[in-house]
Design a protein around this nucleic acid. Structure first.
Lengths: 210, 210
DNA sequence: CCATGCTGAGCGGACGTTCGTTTGTTCGTC
DNA sequence: GACGAACAAACGAACGTCCGCTCAGCATGG
């Protein structure tokens, strides 16, 4: 059944099926036959949309990194106060890692399955993302708004929480996404040595919205 | 070349080679032929020591979990003050995840490659490990020694830092393992709402040893 | 002398990929 | 509205390769 107008849908369904299977079983353990079966087509038909299996992984990983960077830009847009920018960046970080848990998990666990060129691209984007956090932490410290032990370790701690959230978060869990975000923001700001007063003000502000 | 006394050595070398390859390429992407080649024997010979490829993964993962639990028990032995116990548990956690980065990384990324029974065993051990941390955090809060936002999220944050450390730590890095441990302990205690005075005392004590 | 452990050939099967064929759709022409 | 060329996309069989695994045979140290 050729579907001239359905072509785009097939391509989308294929990437969706691939993301789900890569998430569940990993890239290497997923066969193209499984991907094809999930959208009820034959293996060979996949090659109307991709040049090879690696295309599927590349598209997913580059996509999630671009989305992550875009989300960070959007979250910071229009904010000037450095602690507010930090709060917004952490909010975005946790929320994104919970909301796109599947893609983020693939992004973090399948880096080594990527070819050299693509891996370098993804790592560069990750570095770019982390650099924004690092600069924010440095600025907060420079302005005396944070008492930072070690910039790199502090940024890693924030990153680590997001990565970890993507491994356990499920929408039907006992904590809502807003609660998870709000509480983790407090943990991160504490860790950064932001004053208790400032953290309380931020907590109060987020409680208004809840 | 049969090696009557070398049998044990072959078994050890095989597990070592498997761990290295699983770490570098992942379980599914590693073939038994690669494992065999790394210790200069033929594929079939591996079966003198294992019943199947999954034995290699099982041994590595059960081994690392047992080691982790043992390290935690040792770290806590003889300590009574709850904040000191927390500090020791975090110290052990970070140090173990840096020192056994390879095995820990495999343990965290290859859970899904394990059979049902073994996965349940590993998850149970991980739960047991996290429960010790959870109880410590609850005790510290109950004694008024910590101002905990959310027990589960705080424990997850500690766990996440360890997992993350295992992805980037290299012995020749610019921070020594002792520095990484000491600084991360401060981050974790801050996040747990331990008082600045207590944290300073702990920092001073570790600085003496450095 | 025999248990231990390695060799080396080989099994069946699954893999990613290719390709000629078939099918459904679009669109210009009359 | 009917025709037919052009095209996109799925089919399905086949390809060579690699996989995990088995096993008969042989070497050697205790």
């Amino acid at each position: 059944m050729p579907r001239p107008t359905g072509g785009v849908r097939t391509a989308d369904a294929m990437h969706e099926a691939a993301a789900e299977l890569f998430y569940l079983h990993g890239y290497e353990a997923t066969s193209l036959r499984q991907v094809a079966a999930r959208i009820d087509i034959q293996v060979g038909s996949l090659y109307n949309h991709i040049n090879g299996k690696d295309d599927l992984l590349r598209n997913i990983m580059l996509g999630v990194m671009n989305d992550l960077l875009a989300a960070q830009r959007t979250a910071l847009r229009g904010r000037t106060d450095v602690v507010d920018r930090l709060r917004a960046a952490i909010d975005c970080h946790i929320r994104f890692h919970a909301g796109k848990a599947r893609e983020v998990f693939i992004g973090n666990s399948e880096l080594r399955s990527l070819g050299d060129k693509d891996r370098r691209t993804v790592v560069a984007k990750r570095d770019q993302y982390e650099k924004v956090l690092r600069v924010l932490v440095e600025e907060a410290a420079a302005q005396g708004r944070a008492d930072v032990v070690d910039t790199r370790l502090s940024v890693y701690a924030i990153v680590a929480i997001g990565t970890h959230v993507s491994t356990w978060y499920r929408p039907q869990g006992e904590l809502s996404i807003d609660q998870i975000v709000a509480k983790n923001i407090v943990l991160c700001l504490r860790q950064l040595g932001v004053s208790a007063d400032e953290i309380e003000a931020i907590e109060a502000a987020s409680a208004v919205g809840a």
